[in-house]
Amino acid sequence: MKQVEVQIMQQSYLLACPDGRESRLLDAVERLDTAMCKIRDAGKVRARDRIAVLAALNFAFELADRENAELQAQAQARQAPTSQPAPQPAAADNLTAGALSEHDTQRLNQLIRQLDNALGGDGHLI
């Protein structure tokens, strides 16, 4: 296990990383830093922990969209053996509550509860 020092929103962090996976970690850090800076620069949220929570939720929505698209593509492939392009996931910013499956809604609610617990006395996200 290797120690890698990174910066996210001008804050240094020392992270443990499996040997040979440093480039993937650095890519993830860059993606997170970009997402958090966009949220900060939008001017609506200033607290670093709140920005991190919002970035995590955006990534969770993106992941849920991708998983949903993969499941839909698999279901379509089973129903119609002809090859069809996989549906494109909706952008996380354009999601409405009705666009999520019951499973995704449950996962999102669980994530929000975990984030609220992590924030502790700082308050609740939603």
Rank of each mutant, 00 (worst) to 15 (best):
I8D: 01
I8Q: 01
M9V: 07
M9W: 00
Q10H: 13
Q10R: 13
Q10I: 01
Q10M: 12
Q11E: 14
Q11F: 04
Y13D: 06
L14Y: 06
L14D: 07
L14N: 08
A16V: 07
P18G: 02
E22P: 03
E22R: 01
E22G: 07
S23Y: 02
R24E: 05
L25I: 05
L26P: 00
L26R: 15
D27G: 12
D27P: 05
D27C: 05
A28E: 09
V29D: 05
L32Y: 03
L32M: 06
D33E: 04
T34C: 12
T34Q: 15
A35Q: 10
A35D: 11
A35Y: 09
C37V: 13
C37I: 08
K38M: 08
R40M: 08
R40G: 09
D41R: 14
D41Q: 15
D41V: 10
A42K: 11
A42I: 04
A42W: 00
A42Y: 01
G43C: 06
K44F: 11
K44I: 10
V45C: 13
A47V: 11
A47T: 09
R48M: 08
D49P: 00
R50Q: 09
R50C: 00
V53P: 00
V53I: 12
V53F: 03
L54I: 10
A56F: 14
A56E: 06
L57R: 11
F59K: 03
A60K: 08
A60Y: 07
E62Q: 14
E62T: 14
E62S: 12
E62Y: 06
L63F: 09
A64Y: 04
D65Y: 01
E67D: 11
A69I: 11
E70D: 15
E70T: 09
E70Q: 13
A73I: 00
Q74D: 11
Q74R: 13
A75W: 03
A77C: 07
R78D: 10
Q79T: 04
P81G: 10
P81M: 08
T82I: 08
T82P: 00
S83M: 12
S83G: 02
S83C: 06
Q84D: 07
Q84V: 03
P85Q: 02
P85S: 04
A86H: 05
Q88D: 06
Q88F: 04
Q88N: 04
P89N: 02
A90I: 09
A90L: 15
D93Y: 02
N94T: 14
T96W: 01
T96F: 09
T96P: 05
A97F: 15
A97Y: 10
A97E: 13
G98I: 09
G98T: 13
A99R: 02
A99P: 00
A99L: 14
L100A: 07
S101P: 03
S101D: 11
E102F: 15
E102Y: 10
H103T: 12
D104Y: 02
T105M: 10
Q106A: 15
Q106H: 14
R107H: 05
L108Y: 08
L108Q: 05
L108M: 12
N109Q: 15
